[in-house]
Computed example of a mutant assay.
Amino acid sequence: MTITQLHYVLAVAEHKNFTRAAQKVFVTQPTLSMQIQKLEEELEITIFDRTKKPIQLTEVGEKIVKQARNIVNESDRIKDIVDQQKGFIGGVFRLGVIPTVMPTLLPMFIGNFLKKYPKVKLKIEELHTEAILEKLKEGHLDAAIAATPLEVESIKETALYYEPFVAYIPDNNPLSKLSKIEVDDLNIDDMLLLEDGHCFKDGILNLCKSSREYDTDQLQLESGSFETLVKLANEGLGMTLLPYLHTLDLKEPEKSKLRMFKDPVPAREVSLIYNRSELKIQIIEALRSTIAGVVKGAIAFQNVKIISPINKNKE
């Protein structure tokens, strides 16, 4: 049994196809098939049911894949240990970022980070939280930036900052007359929301649910971006909530429509999340310190109440 064979098994388990798996690990399909067959013969079991389309894992194959993932991760730690011993911060680093954080946070730190750590090759993907967790589990991401807490046992979370929710209220809304608002002032039926899949939407629903019951069938207008929500609000179609960093780039006439919450301000916790195996921890720590350095000056709120990003409606 070799680490290479286990890599091949994981590739086939992911792609459910020998040809695509071979392309992924940069070998020919016959080579990959032969090595997996040799492993099956050695173990005297069948890992994959080749009669099904797409290819499926057998019952014992499921257990082998789970253990193979652990073994491959631990083997990767050997190089990681050497890099840490040498003080080397470099190599490919795959980072996932949720859509509601990407456009505001990335420009704030990416230039500083690449200048300070020129040997790191960052590969960044914009992904929803669900996809991020799956890719972390499969080993296709080294870390991610997401709203937390997520309550996933295998994932470690390091808080980067706490970002308040800010209300964007058009002039035709009675709440526009208030200098500050409270959670109890919110009417979920008047709220413009991001479409399904965005954890910020779930955060808003959880925030409103804490004060009153709501009927999700009544939710009408949803969008994929905060920019569209602001435009819809400007048309008098409702109000919305924005993350604080998104409000900094609004034009002055739009900033006049912003209302902060009274203390404790509802906020989301934004964290660097990664597997508990802590592979490439030296790069993770470099990212954390770089982001903390630039965000500290932008967000100075202390008295906040963290709103969970977990979709409580699925419980």
Rank of each mutant, 00 (worst) to 15 (best):
P149A: 04
I204L: 08
F113E: 01
Y161C: 08
A143T: 10
K257Y: 13
Q35H: 13
Q84Y: 07
L242A: 06
R20N: 10
K305I: 01
L175R: 03
E134R: 13
T148M: 07
R50M: 04
L221N: 10
K180D: 09
L205D: 00
F18I: 14
G293S: 14
E130N: 11
K135G: 00
I188Y: 02
V294E: 05
G297T: 14
K255M: 15
I45Q: 08
I55A: 04
L105K: 07
F18Q: 10
L241W: 05
G91F: 00
K312P: 00
L95P: 09
V101Q: 06
L248G: 01
Y274D: 02
I89Y: 01
D185S: 07
D190E: 15
N311Y: 08
Q37D: 10
S210I: 13
G90A: 09
L57H: 07
E41M: 14
I307L: 08
Q302R: 13
E125Q: 10
I284L: 05
K24D: 11
L57R: 01
N173R: 03
K119E: 13
D185G: 14
L32M: 14
N275W: 10
T2R: 03
K52F: 06
F200K: 03
R94C: 01
Y8R: 02
S211H: 08
D196Y: 02
Q35P: 00
I283Y: 01
E227V: 14
F18W: 02
L250T: 00
N187Q: 11
E14H: 12
L127F: 09
K180N: 09
Y162L: 11
N187A: 09
I36C: 07
Q29V: 08
I273L: 04
D196T: 11
D217I: 02
A233Q: 00
K180P: 07
D263Q: 12
L258T: 03
K255T: 04
L248T: 09
M260I: 05
E42H: 05
Y162E: 13
I283H: 04
L194V: 02
P264V: 08
I284T: 08
G61I: 03
D80Y: 02
V92F: 03
E138Q: 10
A159N: 07
G236W: 01
F226P: 04
I145T: 09
I45T: 15
L194E: 12
V60E: 03
A286C: 08
F261D: 02
L194I: 03
